[in-house]
Lab assay of single mutants.
Amino acid sequence: TEYKLVVVGAGGVGKSALTIQLIQNHFVDEYDPTIEDSYRKQVVIDGETCLLDILDTAGQEEYSAMRDQYMRTGEGFLCVFAINNTKSFEDIHQYREQIKRVKDSDDVPMVLVGNKCDLAARTVESRQAQDLARSYGIPYIETSAKTRQGVEDAFYTLVREIRQH
């Protein structure tokens, strides 16, 4: 089974770092803004072998026109913010609204991801993020692309959301 996953969120929150940590098991430290990259990885989730087709997208506003296209083809979405960047957390709402509009559905598989949880300088409390996820009816997972904490959990949870859909 193949799953088309799309990673969305503001610029600099760590979308590529999360994806590369999942696929290649290493942490990319330097920031190089993405336009669009796709990665494929075969994994076993709950005993089922599946192929993850992951689209890593641009957070930069100037590429926002490309969003409709990949939102149409994606089956599930990782909505990523950084726990030390309140603005990126506030941006999640717009991504969710755009996904709902493009998919013409209120019920699209999504996982809210709070990345950079290895950093002490948190400005978005776990509780705020949990409340937001609960209001959307989606899971919330904290990750660190640096330490790998929660990385597999985030992507695998999204696959489970798609399966249950």
Rank of each mutant, 00 (worst) to 15 (best):
D107L: 09
T157F: 10
S64M: 08
C117V: 09
D29E: 08
V8D: 00
N25Y: 06
T1S: 08
D53K: 01
D107M: 13
R96E: 04
E61W: 12
Y136Q: 09
H26D: 13
S105T: 12
E2N: 05
M71E: 08
I138P: 02
K15G: 01
L112A: 04
R160A: 11
T57C: 10
F155K: 00
R72Q: 12
K41S: 11
L78H: 00
S105G: 11
Q128S: 10
I162M: 13
S88G: 08
L78A: 06
S126R: 10
L55R: 02
R134S: 09
C50D: 05
C79A: 08
I99S: 03
S38G: 06
R160K: 12
L112Y: 05
R96C: 15
S126V: 09
Y39Q: 00
R134E: 12
I20L: 05
I141N: 04
Q24A: 14
L158E: 00
R163G: 09
L52P: 02
D118R: 01
K15N: 01
V159C: 05
E97D: 06
Y31F: 04
Q164C: 08
V80S: 03
Y31L: 09
Y95V: 15
Q130M: 09
S64G: 15
A58F: 02
C79D: 02
Y31W: 02
Q60F: 15
I35L: 05
Y3H: 15
F27M: 04
I23M: 14
D106N: 12
M66W: 14
T143K: 00
V124G: 10
N85M: 06
L132R: 07
P109Q: 04
G14I: 00
D29W: 08
D56Y: 02
A133L: 04
A58W: 02
I20H: 00
L18E: 00
E36W: 02
V13Q: 13
L5M: 10
K4D: 04
P33W: 02
S38L: 13
I54G: 00
V6M: 07
D118A: 02
P33C: 02
G76V: 13
V102A: 11
G137F: 03
A82G: 14
N85Y: 04
L158N: 00
D37H: 00
Y3E: 02
E90H: 07
V124E: 12
S105H: 12
Q164T: 08
N115W: 00
T1N: 11
P33T: 02
H165C: 12
A65L: 15
V159R: 04
F155G: 02
K100E: 05
H165R: 12
T157A: 12
A120M: 06
V151W: 08
V28D: 13
S64N: 14
F27C: 03
N85V: 04
G76C: 10
T19H: 00
G114T: 02
Y70P: 08
S105F: 10
L18Q: 04
L78E: 02
Y156A: 15
G9E: 00
E97S: 09
R148L: 14
D29G: 08
E48H: 08
K4Y: 04
V151F: 15
D107Q: 11
A58M: 10
Q69G: 10
L119W: 13
G76P: 01
R163S: 10
R72G: 13
G74D: 03
V102L: 14
T147W: 08
S88V: 05
A145R: 01
D56Q: 01
R127Q: 11
T57W: 03
G74N: 05
P109C: 08
Q42D: 09
D106Q: 14
R160V: 05
E2W: 02
E142V: 05
F77N: 01
L51H: 09
R101M: 06
E36A: 01
T86R: 13
N25P: 08
G11M: 11
Q24R: 05
V151I: 14
Y63D: 09
T123H: 09
S126P: 07
L112D: 02
Q128I: 13
P139T: 09
I35E: 01
I45M: 07
T49V: 11
E90C: 07
I23T: 06
V8Y: 11
E75W: 07
S38E: 03
V44I: 10
R40A: 05
E152C: 07
S88W: 08
A120G: 12
T86F: 12
D118W: 01
Y136F: 13
E61Q: 14
T147G: 13
S105L: 11
V13T: 14
I45T: 06
V159D: 01
K4N: 15
T19D: 02
D118K: 01
T123P: 10
Q21P: 00
P33A: 05
T143A: 13
L55I: 12
L18M: 14
V6C: 08
M110W: 06
K100A: 10
Q98A: 13
E30Q: 04
F89C: 07
G14E: 00
L5Y: 03
M110P: 00
T86E: 12
V102W: 12
L119M: 14
V7T: 06
T57G: 04
Q42K: 07
L5T: 03
N84C: 12
R40W: 04
F77H: 03
D29A: 06
D91C: 13
G74M: 12
E90Q: 12
K41L: 10
V80L: 09
Q164L: 04
R163Y: 05
V8Q: 03
E2F: 04
I83F: 15
M110Y: 01
R122A: 11
L51A: 10
F27Y: 13
E97K: 12
R160W: 06
L119H: 15
D106P: 09
I99A: 04
V28S: 07
S144F: 03
D68P: 05
Y63M: 10
P109D: 02
D56T: 02
R160P: 01
P109N: 06
E48M: 10
K41F: 09
D106V: 12
T1P: 09
M66G: 13
L112H: 01
V8R: 03
A120P: 08
E36L: 03
L5C: 05
G150D: 14
A145C: 14
G76N: 03
E30N: 04
K41Q: 09
G114W: 02
D118P: 01
A82K: 11
A10F: 11
S88E: 06
A154F: 03
I35C: 04
S88M: 08
R96T: 11
Q149E: 11
L51R: 04
H93T: 13
Y136T: 06
F155D: 00
L55M: 06
A17C: 05
D106H: 13
G59M: 03
M110D: 01
